[in-house]
Design a protein around this nucleic acid. Sequence first.
DNA 1: GAGGATGGCTAACGATCGTTAGCCGAACGA
DNA 2: TCGTTCGGCTAACGATCGTTAGCCATCCTC
Lengths: 207, 207
Amino acid sequence: MPSAGGHRPNAGPSDRHHEILDAALELFATIGYSATTMAQIGDRLGIRGPSLYKHIASKQELLVEIVTGMMTELLRRQRAALILGGDVRDRLQRITAVHVQYHAEQRYEAFVGHREIDSLEEPNRTRILDLRREYESRFRELVQEGRELNLFTTSSDRWSSYAILDMGIGVSAWYNPAGSVSPEELAATYARLALRMLGAERNEPEG
Amino acid sequence: MPSAGGHRPNAGPSDRHHEILDAALELFATIGYSATTMAQIGDRLGIRGPSLYKHIASKQELLVEIVTGMMTELLRRQRAALILGGDVRDRLQRITAVHVQYHAEQRYEAFVGHREIDSLEEPNRTRILDLRREYESRFRELVQEGRELNLFTTSSDRWSSYAILDMGIGVSAWYNPAGSVSPEELAATYARLALRMLGAERNEPEG
DNA sequence: GAGGATGGCTAACGATCGTTAGCCGAACGA
DNA sequence: TCGTTCGGCTAACGATCGTTAGCCATCCTC
């Protein structure tokens, strides 16, 4: 048997666990959570469905790990972007870039994280929705702040922040990592589009 | 029995069929296609799951009707917007407004139409994806046309047209018809945001 | 009033799927 | 070398669900 099994003296969360998570992620993103079977996940590792239960507790647990990891990372990066300070335009540009870059880099996590929220059982669903609300509110707050300082000329904080969020989320549905544009480039481009949308371009009424 | 049954002398596609379609639509949008059971759809009409089959062929047929109807209507409205002519900015503004207005007015159809495409069986899936490609290409063509005429100052046709499309699609996920903003208002606002994003604002370098 | 169609119903089939139970070979520690 | 643990496997359970079969009351037409 080509198994690498046997006694594993010491390790973190096992490699097998991560392999299963990766396989599940790709399947959840490609064909959806409830359409994915444990047998299919097992296939990706060359093992049977029931064998997965030596490493994980349930299918639902896989989804929870994926979605929680996604929201946690998104919030972490957003905080890191905000902590750098700068004026409102700088900060908004940075959290937009971070938003877009994540949705390109980790397009599967992002896609599943948005699409399968309703597949989460309570209380996880509510918990994740709360995190998402927190994440989204940062955009709205920043747009509002910029508008109060007359740096943005937009009619509604709410709608324009939703527009920025949604165009970033959309990236996770079409981004192709084998294409010619890097996540960083795309993030920079989109961040510029966002500022333009808010009427906040810097090099504008100068000529 | 409170049934309205009996012989129905003459009618188009029966009322019951539409009622079922409506119930299915709301459930597909709320909890997803594969999570929706025929019994749940029946519940909405006060009848049992198997009774639905007196009016419809299958659950899959319901999805096909919803998604086909959505793409057909979207293309119809887009064509109507384009046929009015005008310069590139006019046309782009109009198809963006139409895009957003539909995603607000028919948010359930739109949401299901985007989310459940992979739940369609072939050949319907491919057919719908082709229609969607056609719909999306109109945006890209218009952005390209405007850029060649130096009316838009955007770096990439592809990305900015995706951004416009995605921010419209996003509307179907959060729009609340009981809120204070009408689909028309939202469409007008978003169309303005889109043109701004492209650097195509009219009343700009005039002061 | 007879005949037929409509549109409900219950029962049940057949398939799928998440999960559990229980078995066993391989590898490691003492 | 012996015992333990790891991590596979097959078999099977239990639940769910789409769908079909077959029954029957109601109503319309003639």
